[in-house]
Design a protein around this nucleic acid. Structure first.
Length: 482
RNA sequence: GGCCCCUUGGUCAAGCGGUUAAGACGACGCCCUUUCACGGCGUAAUCAUGGGUUCGAUUCCCGUAGGGGUCACCA
């Protein structure tokens, strides 16, 4: 069997949509799982939709995600060029081949006639379709018009009746009647190929064995099959993947801000987590494991786990998976990701960032949520005394005041401000007073943070803040409660 | 509208003729705990619908409904 070759063929129209990225991911995985090559081809033939810099975005996204291509525009390869606009000259002769074989024909119908035809068909409720007006022109008529330089297109000659059956690895055999298929244009008036034609020719020329693409191409697959057959080419394996939806009836739209990979990165997601999540959207692994690295995905992936119905994007689940990946980071990796966010909130130079990071790691699901968690470090926020009242801790304003008064001299007496020393001193106090931990520790936490939720308890926060600042805040607490 | 595809809890989903119908996220409760989180345990919640086929249908077939896709000299 030939070496597996898959291709990702995006149009550079702006940014990397999550659905596209997932297609790229599956495409990459299928190649790698089979020891094959993953090829990147840029389909930039629609000049109108081209967006400056979009190709760079594609490169960058794929690289960040580790979906490295074996052949592509920037690195070349044996079947280049890999930018479709640079391949434009080569298609016409393939179409002319088809004309010779009787599988395609010249069509001289102008736009006016076609528009009129379409209007009539629509008005009478018929599906708009070319009426095959030029299909049976005699060779003489064709030659005459060609010689007279009448503009023309080349159309595919779809069988008038019978049916076509094509095979999809996921959906199995799908059969459609030829009568529902249009004689689609292969070569446009300007001599350039349509996407549908270029795609088939390019895939063949590039030796693509598995075509992974969005479900929207399912309807044109029969026409592609007919084209492959007309050429006598081997038909690749098709894998049509379903769309990712925003809700039951809407696709993830470009406007809501979480449809693109770039947006998700800005929101504080890890690329591994995004990849992991989108792999799971529309694909189910065999076992119970849900958290995967890219190599693990390659190992686990199987086409049979792909879903045939659209999947709704669930931000909650993505977030949970992101948290899962964050917790698996080494402390060093976590710090390097988290530091910019910590620095957004903490400007003080004397603070031990690493210590904050270790507190943050188990409770961070999104890096962008870090600043608000630690916004009390540089300056004690205004807070209400009601924070001192906690039912479960059995604390209220009175006993909190008493506790803080007890805590103050204990803290002042600590020479070496380490977590261990603070811990020992306070637990000694707790033992001496014969109270529950919370009676002492809850008021301390409130006094030093001024918040109801903090990453870490009173002792941990005191270490971070330093002796001077901690004592100052405890005194502030005493004043507020007095 | 024609054609094609799809339909298991709120969401992602396992299942592939006989199951107490997995698991995860989310929700709720409990445990652990100096808050929150992490971790652990548990609860609620699903086979769109009507007909068949069968001893037996979530599973196979048909219809209905709902959803998606597609019908360009766009990709």
């Amino acid at each position: 069997m030939n070496k597996v070759r898959t291709r990702f063929a995006p149009s550079p129209t702006g940014y990397m949509h999550i659905g596209n990225l997932r297609t790229a991911l599956y495409t990459y995985i299928i190649a790698k799982k089979n020891g094959g090559d993953f090829i990147l081809r840029i389909e930039d033939t629609d000049q109108g939709r081209l967006v400056e810099g979009a190709t760079e975005v594609i490169y960058q996204t794929l690289r960040e995600c580790g979906l490295n291509w074996d052949e592509g525009p920037d690195i070349g390869g044996p079947v280049g060029p890999y930018i479709q606009s640079q391949r434009m000259g080569m298609f016409k002769k393939y179409a002319e081949d088809l004309v010779e074989k009787g599988e395609a024909y010249y069509c001289f119908c102008d736009k006016d006639r076609l528009d009129e035809l379409k209007a009539i068909q629509e008005a009478s409720g018929i599906m708009p379709m070319y009426d095959r007006h030029c299909r049976n022109l005699s060779p003489e008529e064709v030659k005459e018009k060609l010689d007279a330089n009448v503009p023309y297109v080349i159309r595919q000659k779809v069988p008038l009746d019978g049916e076509v059956t094509f095979h999809d690895e996921l959906y199995g055999d799908i059969t459609v009647a030829c009568s529902t298929l249009d004689d689609q244009i292969l070569i446009k008036t300007d001599g350039m190929p349509t996407y549908n034609f270029a795609n088939v020719v390019d895939d063949h020329l590039m030796g693509i064995t598995h075509v992974v693409r969005g479900n929207e191409y399912l309807a044109s697959a029969p026409k592609y099959d007919l084209l492959y057959k007309a050429f006598g080419w081997e038909i690749p394996k098709y894998i049509h993947v379903e769309h990712i939806m925003k809700d039951k009836q809407h696709k993830l739209s470009k406007r809501d801000g979480d449809a693109s990979y770039q947006d998700l990165m800005k929101k504080g997601y890890l690329s591994e987590a995004v990849l992991n999540y989108i792999a799971l959207l529309g694909w189910a692994p065999k076992g119970e494991q849900e958290i995967f690295t890219l190599p693990e995905l390659i190992e686990e992936f199987d086409i049979s786990g792909l879903s045939k119905s659209p999947a709704i994007f669930d931000p909650m689940k993505l977030k949970a998976i992101n948290g899962e990946h964050i917790r698996r980071l080494s402390p060093e990796e976590f710090l390097s990701h988290a530091e910019p966010y910590i620095r957004q909130a903490v400007k003080r130079e004397d603070i031990d960032i690493g210590r904050i990071a270790s507190l943050l790691q188990p409770r961070t699901e999104l890096f962008t949520e870090i600043p608000e968690q630690i916004d009390f470090i540089d300056a004690l926020p205004e807070y209400d005394n009601s924070l001192y009242c906690h039912k479960k801790m059995k604390t209220n304003e009175e006993n909190s005041l008493e506790s803080l008064k007890d805590i103050l001299p204990v803290l002042e007496g600590i020479e070496d401000w380490t977590e261990e020393n603070i811990h020992n001193a306070l637990f000694e106090l707790i033992a001496r007073k014969g109270v529950k931990n919370g009676i002492i520790l809850w008021p301390l936490r409130v006094a030093v943070s001024g918040k109801s939720f903090t990453p870490g308890g009173g002792i941990e926060l005191s270490v971070i803040l330093g002796k001077e600042e901690t004592i100052k805040r405890v005194k502030t607490g005493i004043e507020k409660l007095s």
